[in-house]
Design a binder for these strands. Sequence first.
DNA 1: CTAGGGTTAG
Length: 600
Amino acid sequence: MYLHSRKSFEIDQMLKEFNGFNLVVQNCLITANLQWGKVIDACRLFDEMPERNEVSWTSLISGLLKHGNVNEAMVYFERNPFSNVFTWTATINGLVQNRLSFQAMRLCKKMLQSGVLPNDITFTTIIRACVELSDLGLGKSVLGLIVKAGFENNVCVSNSLVTLFLRLGEIDSARKTFDRMEEKDVVSWTTILDMYVEMGDLREARRMFDEMPERNEVTWSAIIARFSQSGNAEEAVKLFQQMVRHSFKPNVSCYSSVISALATLEALQAGMNIHAHILKIGMEINVFVGSSLIDLYCKCGNTKDGRLVFDEIPEKNVVCWNSMVSGYGFNAQLEKATELFNQIPHKNNISWNSLIAGHLDMYAKSGSIESSRKIFKRMPTKNEVVWTAMIQGLAENGFAEESLRLFEEMEKKSSIAPNELILLSVLFACSHCGLVDKGLSYFNSMEKVYGIRPNERHYTSVVDMLSRSGRLFEAEEFIKSMPLEPEANAWAALLSGCKTFGNETLAGRVAEKLSGIVETKPGGYVLLSNIYASEGRWKDVMSTRNLMNQKGIKKSGGCSWIELRNQVHLFYSQDETHTQSNEIYWVLQLFNSEIQSHLT
DNA sequence: CTAGGGTTAG
């Protein structure tokens, strides 16, 4: 197998002497060719072989399938004179990898009919096929086979069963299968960790993670990704730092997740540190890492560096195209966004959305509403996201009436059901064009008609519309009667209503309430200082900012690390957290004095 | 020959 790591020219050299080698070496050479993607050469060599064993057939067929050459693989499969479980499993698996799960199941049936007994790997493979087909009934019949064949206590097989149930929404069965397992490994724990995330219970997932008997880099990767995806970017970054501190080596998945988290936080400096490290290990050509890097630079307003990353990705997929388009979009470079958009080879819905979103931000500045409407009309199929983007964009940029009209059109003409973002925009629009009663009636029908329970933001929007129209006491009563804890923004909206309509008494009460909330809420101080700023109370703004500094409300510091003998060493910019920092500084001092002595 | 984790849009 050492051949895989050889340079291709060395393999070329050896190929010249191919016919002089024995069967085993010839098999290795075929595998090496397939690894390098030289499919045609591999087939030619195979055909030239004087004799072939089971391994020859299996490696050729699975190699062909790995590169998507399904038809060729199946021709060789039919010609294969040997019949063993390895070849069958490899072929079935290859079909699943090529998204041909139905054919895979058909082949599996043939295998059973021919009398070849499946092994644990065959079972994990066909369970995955059931997942791909979203066929729970089929999965249950496979489970019957598994029990019959005596594999129900096999760790790998049980793990894939947990995944099957999880993916098909059978949470109880997943949990039961997991609980029944006598032996659990890292994969089992990581899978069940994901179950809690799937159920939306991040706290339980975190507890599970902390208590797991065993973790590996995939486990870390999973928890970091999940926190990043569910809006806990800061926690994701902290977990990443912990991971590195525990000397786990981050992989591609990890890097893409943590960079995506840093993009959300707009933490350019920390992101650039990681980018430097990624360049060092040559990972910048990976599409996943590259896409998040593009996003990072663009979110931080640096489309030039984003474009540099984009240009360096050799095998671009639609995601990195989209990242760059949306990056230009929200940085107000619409011409570049449109130009790039037109070059995307296989556009998907997100490509369209990225372009539209870029135009939804420019409304206020250049009045490019016409081009947005054009894009919206040009779209072949409009999904939920597109409707949401358009309605939201209109509402947030001063086109309240048009936003409401579009909402009504969506209800009449499309099969899309309003989601909570759309309803929020509708309330926002009502609030901004003074349609208070219409807004209230939408709010009251949210749960009954649309089946969506209002969240804090919807409540805030109602407070806002009442306050703007001078219905201040109603607004106050509304806040008091909320079943949820009101956002600080709700009180702020009421306060600004009090100012507009000159109600000093209520204003005093609300301000008092607000300053109490500010203490406990993240972002509370920022809100307070914005309120002061809007009233021109600059002294109060300054004192709030000072208070924030005193309380240590600031962005997280930078960190860097190096890899030595397969160990990762971490350094922070502020404190000395490295376990051997004393020794390190001692050695540094030694170096310094050495240099000094040479200088004098 | 196998099971768990990844990037973009609202």
